[in-house]
């Protein structure tokens, strides 16, 4: 009998699943904070394609107007978001798992083949734990998490951390960056969930329990 194949280690799984509700709460409370001053838009010059956010969005989402509670929630859960992210980053660095995650030179050309494969236009290139597109995306998401923490600190204490805030372009630029990083997560979340559904049960199960059937056995099923 072959033994089961280890897909994701305990620390990776727990930090992943802790991040999901914590980041959701950070985004929701962030919405409450953003609502009080919501100047951002998608557009150019005088043309606004989409105001972030239109009135119908606030109404439809039922998000409500809660600046003070939003700030309280944000500055409580920011601790969990940061600690969880730091635990994951240290674990990945120390365990050597970063080798399977960081994209190498080949990844950028292979990522195109992965996207083609996802669109049903070709074979999947050979891969390790993560495919080329995943390596690029997941690394980017971790960097974005770091970016959220840094831009968040710059908005939170723009005078005590004035050097950091000015490095990011000033108080309003830091707020702008913090907002669009968050929109990046929302976009990632949509694609991620779509890919997980497409990949199927064994893949989701491996993110929860860590294991899958050995490669040969799974193929034989």
């Amino acid at each position: 009998m072959q033994s089961l194949e280890l897909k994701h280690r305990l620390t990776t799984r727990w930090t992943h699943w802790v991040n999901f509700p914590v980041l959701s709460l950070m985004i929701m409370s962030g919405m409450w904070i953003y609502w009080a001053y919501d100047p951002y838009r998608i557009g150019f010059g005088d043309v606004t394609l989409l105001h972030m956010f239109p009135d119908w969005f606030y109404k439809l989402s039922g998000i409500g107007k809660k600046l003070s509670f939003g700030m309280a929630l944000h500055f409580v859960f920011a601790w969990l978001f940061a600690i969880n992210g730091i635990v994951y980053a240290i674990y990945t660095a120390v365990s050597g798992e970063w080798r399977e995650l960081l994209p190498d030179a080949k990844c950028f050309s292979q990522a195109i083949e992965v996207v083609k494969h996802d669109l049903g236009l070709g074979p999947l290139p050979p891969q390790g734990r993560y495919n080329a597109a995943q390596r690029i995306t997941y690394t980017l998401i971790i960097l974005m998490g770091f970016g959220s923490m840094i831009t968040g600190l710059a908005i939170y204490k723009p005078i005590q951390l004035a050097g950091l805030t000015s490095l990011l372009g000033g108080y309003q630029w830091a707020r702008f960056e913090h907002f669009w990083l968050t929109m990046g997560y929302v976009g990632f979340f949509g694609i991620h969930v779509g890919q997980v559904i497409k990949a199927g049960w064994a893949n989701l199960r491996s993110m929860v329990c860590g294991y899958d059937l050995p490669k040969g056995a799974a193929d034989a099923q």
């Binding site: 009998m1 089961l4 199960r205 929860v208 860590g210 294991y211 899958d212 059937l213 056995a217």
Partner: peptide, 9 residues
Amino acid sequence: NEQELARRT
């Protein structure tokens, strides 16, 4: 293997 995986799941 299947039983072991089911138990872990």
